[in-house]
Amino acid sequence: MLRIQNLVKRYGHGEPVLRGLNLDVAGESVVSIIGASGAGKSTLLRCINRLVEPSEGSIELNGLELTTLKREELRKARRRIGMIFQGFNLVDRLTVMENVQCGRLGYIPYWRAALRKYPAEDIERAYHLMERVGIAHYANKRADALSGGERQRVGVVRALMQQPEILLADEPTASLDPVSSRQIMELLQNLSQELSLPVLINIHNVAEAREYTQRIVGMRFGKLIFDGAPADLDQEAMDAVYSGTPGEERQQADVGPAQAQAVVS
């Protein structure tokens, strides 16, 4: 259970990016966050694991208040929050196995990390998860030898290795081709059910959001202005979320990730 209350984020003295945002995510649901660029989607996600420090408000994960945690406590809390990135954020020069084991870094002692002597159960779990997403045969390959879709699977497994209580995905498909993009979305949906894991996805592609998630949240100017099932997202709601944004971006939100990539990058 994730409960965000009154979340405000302000960079320096400028206008706040998040203005008193409230959001509850319960159980094993997949929630899509849609909204124009600059609506604050990415900031919202990064506030949850405090890669970005929230200015005000409260974020509670399964009863634990995250915003007030000190260094060591924060590290412990972060282990429970998996994150998947738009650019995969893998370490290119390490093998897939090492990248995957990065998800365990918060749990294992330093010497194990340094000598690559991972605990047997972690290795077993890694193979198991890699098999589940179809990349087990790449374990000894360097991460930069993989294709985009495969790299994102490594990113997903890394996050799952943490045994997270929630998964945050920041535009996980925006750098992928349409086919891989759908595969990743499907994977996230299935994993959410298999592991009874809440998944929070920032997404540009509204068509994918409709298809793969049970709940869609629309953001605009740092606030939630839509919250409902895909069926409730009618033209009026779409206009409210995207009105005033350049036609080009509107369009690519409706069409697909291939075009979305051009705008994002």
């Binding site: 090492e98 690559r116 047997a120």
Partner: peptide
């Protein structure tokens, strides 16, 4: 999860060494 896990994992799957 899928069936392969329950069938018991061979010991090699519990060890991994970085390719030298």
């Amino acid at each position: 999860m899928s069936g392969s896990a329950e069938r018991g994992v061979p010991s090699s799957r519990r060890h991994w060494r970085k390719p030298p």
